Amino acid sequence: MATSRVLGYLESRKNLTGGACGVAGLVLTFAGVAGPYWPVVVAGLYGAGALIAPPERPALPDFPSPSQQLEEIRADFGRLGGYLADVELPPAAAARLTALTELLAALLEPGWVAEALAQDPEGVHAVSRTVRQDVPEAVDAFVRTRWWTRLTPGTEPPERHLERQLGLLQEEAGRLASALRDAQARRQESHTRYLEDRQQ
Rank of each mutant, 00 (worst) to 15 (best):
S67A: 15
F63Q: 04
Y37H: 08
P64V: 06
A43Q: 07
A75S: 13
L80C: 07
S65N: 08
R79T: 03
A31N: 13
P39E: 08
Q69S: 13
W38L: 02
A34S: 15
V40K: 07
G78Q: 13
Q69T: 11
R74D: 01
A24S: 12
P64K: 13
S65M: 06
Y37T: 07
D62H: 03
F77Q: 05
F77M: 05
A53N: 05
F63G: 08
V42W: 06
P58T: 09
S65K: 09
P36W: 08
A31M: 15
R79G: 05
P39F: 11
A24L: 15
A48S: 02
P61Q: 10
P66K: 04
I73T: 09
S67H: 10
G32L: 11
V42Y: 03
V27L: 10
V33W: 13
G35M: 02
R74L: 06
L70I: 12
G35P: 13
L51P: 01
G47P: 02
S67W: 00
A24D: 07
S67F: 01
P64G: 07
P36T: 09
A59I: 06
P55C: 00
G81S: 15
F30K: 02
I73K: 01
V42E: 02
R74Q: 08
V41A: 14
L60D: 09
R74Y: 01
F77A: 04
P36K: 05
G35S: 12
P39C: 04
R79N: 08
G49Q: 10
F77E: 01
D62C: 02
L26Y: 11
R57P: 02
L80N: 10
Q68Y: 03
Y37R: 12
Y37L: 15
W38C: 01
V41Y: 11
P55N: 12
S65Y: 07
